[in-house]
Design a protein around this nucleic acid. Sequence first.
DNA 1: TGTACATTCTTGTATATACAAGTCTGTGTA
DNA 2: TACACAGACTTGTATATACAAGAATGTACA
Lengths: 245, 245
Amino acid sequence: MSSQNPATTTETGSQPRYAAIKAHIRTQIESGEWPAHFRVPSENQLSQDFSVSRMTARRALSELTDEGVLIRSQGLGTFVAEPVPAGSLLEVRNIADEIAARGHSYANRILKLEQTTASTEVAVALGLAEGAAVYHSIIVHLDNDLPIQFEERYTNPTLVPEYLHQDFTAATPNEYLTRVAPLTEVDTTVEAIGADDAVSSALEIKAGTACLQIWRRTKSSAGTVSFARLVHPGNRYRLGAQLRF
Amino acid sequence: MSSQNPATTTETGSQPRYAAIKAHIRTQIESGEWPAHFRVPSENQLSQDFSVSRMTARRALSELTDEGVLIRSQGLGTFVAEPVPAGSLLEVRNIADEIAARGHSYANRILKLEQTTASTEVAVALGLAEGAAVYHSIIVHLDNDLPIQFEERYTNPTLVPEYLHQDFTAATPNEYLTRVAPLTEVDTTVEAIGADDAVSSALEIKAGTACLQIWRRTKSSAGTVSFARLVHPGNRYRLGAQLRF
DNA sequence: TGTACATTCTTGTATATACAAGTCTGTGTA
DNA sequence: TACACAGACTTGTATATACAAGAATGTACA
């Protein structure tokens, strides 16, 4: 600092300076360079390294703390937080792994894999125009040959053009999507429903059976990648979605 | 401003100044004084009203924005956000406030309030010995006289000895517990169930109706405070538990 | 040997200031 | 009338500065 005229400048032309510091810290953590409990450089140190004021460096650290990436303690310093506090819906995110961990066999049935046009709801969820082309898939996941999850998914073809030609017996749609499009954000909504006809026949349960329905919208930096509805029969498979506040 | 010596002072002895501004804004919103889409005073206005610098007023607005209470738009102003887009489990955490925020009337029915002995499950959950004394309560929460939540709760008597003598028509158990025992951690598990007999009669729904069941274990530094089972009818009340990763 | 205290880190709160940038409104000109 | 533009707001970014307060370390004194 010091030499250049105070404030402003914005130089990069796009992202603010604190964002660059946040990105740097995130990179160190994600690459494994800075493991959990690692002591992050102090505000003064960062302000020197990046040639910004202490308040700007502080903002980067504070926001990452709000986001659960870091933990701060007055007098002690700033530290990398635990990777993921708890289960936090991981078992839903990657059902094949979950089943394998239980020592069961995983399989799936592809009921539908097609290109169709976006309805109003789907268009809004994916950020596309109504009637635009979308990929639509319906897959049933089996645990020891017993259906335990009904997955209906709409995928944005502009972001994942190869979706229709994937071998989903090898990797689930969710695994494939997280590999090809690095996710920046996941919105999840949980609700209870009685099984409708499509679900009841696919999961081989009576219509009206209590099910846990999870809406999941995954976004990458380029936009909304996919929009899925995951239905679990509540009686057959005890789904524990552990959350943390 | 201006006259008093710059910075510091902290005067109140406890909470920071931006917290007082946040509390004021929250009060206005919760009382209905400032409805959704209401334009909140600008940073400059607040800094005058509260005799703080603009950056301090800004901090209050920014944090409330991060918390989803406000929405800010450059050039336009700051506005009160929708009551809660779809939930964020707040309605579960504090159902009375949630109902009040929707402009509905809140009431509850106390079906049971007793001291009993801990079963194996309850003992494990609360970290007590099997057969130890525990408080047991069953309460139904009503939204406009319509039952929307069934709450069965086991509470640790060593941590909250006054539990049985509270007036739960004035404050819900959850409100009371968070006030008397500062919580350090909350574990939540979500699942779908068909309504059992106790739930169906309390919520006035048919047995077997799909419900969202939330198990919640609250801990303070002294140990596990309480263990609750919250059941919402899935058809009557669309519970959106919006999560973020 | 121990305890008390000063020093030096750290993060936390607060201010005053500067300029950037989006949004609206009114005014003046073509 | 229609358009351009200047102002007057708003929020957003960035800095320099000041002091408060928690935590660790070393030093001096009893």
